[in-house]
Design a protein around this nucleic acid. Structure first.
Lengths: 197, 197
DNA sequence: TCGGTTCCGATGCAAGCGCATCGGTACGGG
DNA sequence: CCCGTACCGATGCGCTTGCATCGGAACCGA
């Protein structure tokens, strides 16, 4: 068994390159040659890892979805001591990718979302991710609702959908410069505060 | 002064073609040749109307922005008899482009938003539109707040930002199939109902 | 040492892109 | 009537794209 390379690692490396390029020039500025150059591998290597460009993009989308999801998860387990309401705030903040250091991820995410509107296979991946996030938010809202003294007739699933859509919308508006990150943060937390009265 | 053609009309015609193509295949599937074919004019005519492809895209974005804005405006003046709160609901519904017949506009809008994240000139056009919409929503929220018996400590501008972001996020989620239009509609109106307690 | 297997990087290819060019066409003033 | 001008459609060019190909390098077991 001769030379073996770390295919999984290489795929991740290439996915990172795709994200960097999509951040800089948009998804349509991503070409096989540029990806290869950015990842410091040859074009042949890229084509060996992914049979087609679309396969590469789908993998890249899965890659960054995974990263974002992991960060949300990590944020949740890092702050278990406080209330479910606080945890919800942290999760929402992470999801909206408001921190400057995640601006790149946000841009890539937006590029993929736009592409998903016309690409069935990308849409499937995205839908799965949104479903997972919505489920997690629904659970958090339910828990926070139980802990609260106030018991308003909240529909946790509906509130989760609203929160997810709000977070996405705010991210978008920050990206195109309509809102500052600070303004978006304020809007988000005012909304959360409104949930418990 | 020989033969004169209606340049403005032709530009609009081409813009419509751009929108149709962007709806079907995404913004990066829009090529000069296809636009010309769809608009039933020659490529030369397209190039005469717009010096460059980017100029054409910017004009197309302005065109659909105008249409959406007009529809919101029309919806507002069509229902003056009811309360400001109702008007707000109508405006928000229009903005989120939830009706199936406006799905195409929504997709085009999303494509432009994604592109604007990396294109400065597109971003400027978009920002101007969002600013106008936000202003209108702020005014409506203020009026509705005055008319209400309840006077909660609402920040009209912040609520307008939230509403705009929520509408955009919902539109996006409907487009990629995460939510049905009905679900999005429910979320939107639940949010609006929550504003007046 | 060496044979065999696995991989990869350079190159080729057809198609499609945006853009520039130009001869023909149709119109309107004199 | 007819000429000059404003317009347009077809065509060409240079370039880039995604994808296919293949000779040789790299590596491990014997």
């Amino acid at each position: 068994m001769p030379r073996q390379v770390d295919h999984v690692g290489r795929r991740r490396l290439i996915a990172e390159a795709v994200c960097h390029l999509a951040d800089e020039r948009g998804l349509e500025g991503v070409t096989l040659r540029d990806v290869a150059a950015r990842a410091q591998v040859s074009m042949g290597a890229v084509q060996r890892c992914f049979r087609t460009k679309e396969e590469m993009l789908v993998f890249a989308l899965g890659h960054i979805s995974e990263r974002i999801m992991e960060r949300v998860q990590a944020r949740l387990v890092r702050s278990p001591a406080q209330s479910a309401g606080t945890a919800l705030g942290h999760a929402a903040t992470e999801i909206s990718l408001l921190r400057m250091e995640h601006r790149a991820e946000a841009r890539v995410w937006l590029a993929f979302v736009a592409q998903a509107a016309v690409s069935k296979v990308l849409a499937r991946t995205l839908k799965a991710n949104y479903a997972t996030l919505q489920e997690a938010l629904t659970r958090l809202i339910s828990e926070a609702g139980e802990g609260s003294d106030h018991t308003p007739p909240l529909d946790p699933q509906r509130e989760a959908r609203a929160l997810l859509a709000l977070a996405d919308g705010l991210t978008t508006h920050v990206l195109i410069g309509h809102l500052t990150p600070q303004e978006a943060h304020n809007v988000l937390h005012a909304h959360l505060a409104g949930l418990w009265e």
